[in-house]
Design a protein around this nucleic acid. Structure first.
Lengths: 96, 96
DNA sequence: TTGACATGCAAGTGTCCGCTTACCTATCGT
DNA sequence: ACGATAGGTAAGCGGACACTTGCATGTCAA
């Protein structure tokens, strides 16, 4: 659970995708591809973005809803809220 | 910078080391090895821990001070303070 | 219905990463 | 000085991961 979360955040492209969804929610796969390419200068294939979104979704950072042939993606920042409290607050025990 | 930070957090063993240093600061390499093995049941070599500490130190999460033949390690939670604000606050642009 | 569009699935590839193994350096006690 | 202790360096291995390539599925407009 926490492992999937940290692993999802470990990749710079995935963090950029989160940035993109934070700025404009409800984007489709192609929209994300286009904006990654144009705004961020990232040359990345559609399939690669699709796989990144799957990882983010498995970590609970992205939720998706399907409408017809479109699939819209939204950021869910809730898992990020208390990410580092484990170390920033006086010691609690937590599972890795 | 942010990349090293997230990469450092991506490994479960390194997160456990941070837990350990949060609970008791100023531990040496051998102390950390011992406690990882005993408290957390992790079978891990000294060299592996040493490499993990190097990664954590490169990320600014651990600072070390040498005294004689001992090297003491301390947690620095400062880089963790505003880790996720990038996504939890209304959008700011940040570099990946 | 047919073609274009949006997405999904899966195998293959190259690279990075965590770990081990083996050896080396430095400091302390006796 | 010598051995023991604490730590450092570097090469090599196996697995995980990001990405590509190729094909399949599903939806909509004309």
């Amino acid at each position: 659970m926490a492992d999937e979360l940290f692993k999802a955040l470990a990749d710079a492209t995935r963090r950029t995708i989160l940035d993109e969804l934070a700025e404009r929610s409800g984007q489709t796969l192609f929209e994300i591809c286009t904006r990654l390419s144009q705004k961020h200068g990232l040359a990345i294939s559609r399939q690669a973005v699709s796989q990144h979104l799957a990882v983010l979704e498995a970590a609970g950072l992205v939720v998706s809803r399907r409408e017809g042939r479109y699939k819209f993606h939204d950021l869910d920042a809730a898992p990020l809220e208390h990410l580092a409290e484990r170390w920033t607050r006086p010691h609690r025990e937590d599972t890795a």
